[in-house]
Simulated assay, not measured.
Amino acid sequence: MNIVGWMIVFCEVAFWVVIILGLVARYIFKREKLGLVLLALTPLIDLLLLITAGIDLYRGAVATQVHAIAAVYIGVSIAFGKSMIEWADQRFQYYVTKQGEKPKKLYGIEYSKQYFKSWVRHLIAYAIGATLLAGLIFWIGDATRTEALSGMLRFWSFVLVIDLVIAISHFIWPKKEKKKTIN
């Protein structure tokens, strides 16, 4: 694995460490401003990954799947970052500090709407990531060096369409609550 691959791993770990530290500062140590500052660091982690991948390609590296995944990671992190922080915040409040409401499982039309909102975030992530991929392809200007980036763009387009089909299917066949059995 090259430097970009290791940077993706570092960024994913750093993302969750910063979130956990932000939540601990906010709820355990009652330092709300410090918690907010820590949570606000998450976009800088994405910027670090973008710079690392850009420098690697600028130095003449052939774009690999790892470079393509870096663009996908950045798109997903930006589009889903806030909702992931909210998800972690809600669970931290309930399970760690024993405050707040228990996270609710959704079913039926509520679940369908929530899944469709998630698909819209996926579309935003795609728009960001695809723009980065297209930008890198244009910047490098050599189809043989950017084949992995083009391949990822095609694959992600396919995944996005499949995810839309799944989102629509939830409106046709809504998710039902599992019946509890008594033993």
Rank of each mutant, 00 (worst) to 15 (best):
M84D: 12
R91A: 05
I78R: 08
S150T: 08
G60V: 00
E177L: 09
R121C: 07
Y27A: 09
K180R: 09
A88M: 13
R145F: 12
F116W: 09
Q65R: 13
L41S: 06
L44G: 15
K113F: 15
L48V: 13
V13N: 10
I20Y: 01
S83M: 10
Q90W: 08
E86F: 00
D163F: 09
G129S: 04
L47A: 14
L123C: 03
T144W: 13
W173D: 12
A70D: 03
E177N: 10
T144S: 15
I182Q: 15
Q65I: 14
L41M: 13
A88I: 01
D89I: 08
T52V: 09
E32K: 09
L34H: 06
T42S: 04
K105G: 01
R59E: 15
I74T: 03
K179V: 12
A130G: 10
W156G: 01
V161D: 08
R154F: 12
I124F: 14
G5C: 05
I109P: 02
I69V: 15
I85T: 00
L132R: 00
R31I: 05
A143G: 10
K98L: 14
A40H: 10
A40I: 05
A40G: 10
L57V: 10
V66N: 07
K180Q: 03
K82R: 13
K113Y: 13
L21R: 04
A68C: 11
V17A: 13
G108Y: 07
I55L: 12
L47P: 04
F10Y: 15
A88Y: 03
T64M: 01
G35Q: 05
L47T: 07
A125E: 02
I19G: 01
H122C: 12
I172A: 13
K175P: 02
D142L: 15
C11V: 04
T64N: 06
M7Y: 05
S150Y: 08
G35I: 04
W156K: 09
A148Y: 02
I109V: 15
L153C: 08
G129K: 02
L39N: 01
A70R: 02
Y107V: 06
A148S: 14
L49M: 09
G81M: 12
H67M: 01
A61L: 00
A88R: 07
L23K: 04
S150P: 02
L164Q: 07
Y73Q: 07
G151N: 09
Y107Q: 15
Y27M: 14
I85R: 06
D56I: 05
D163G: 05
Y94P: 07
W16N: 08
S77C: 04
E101D: 13
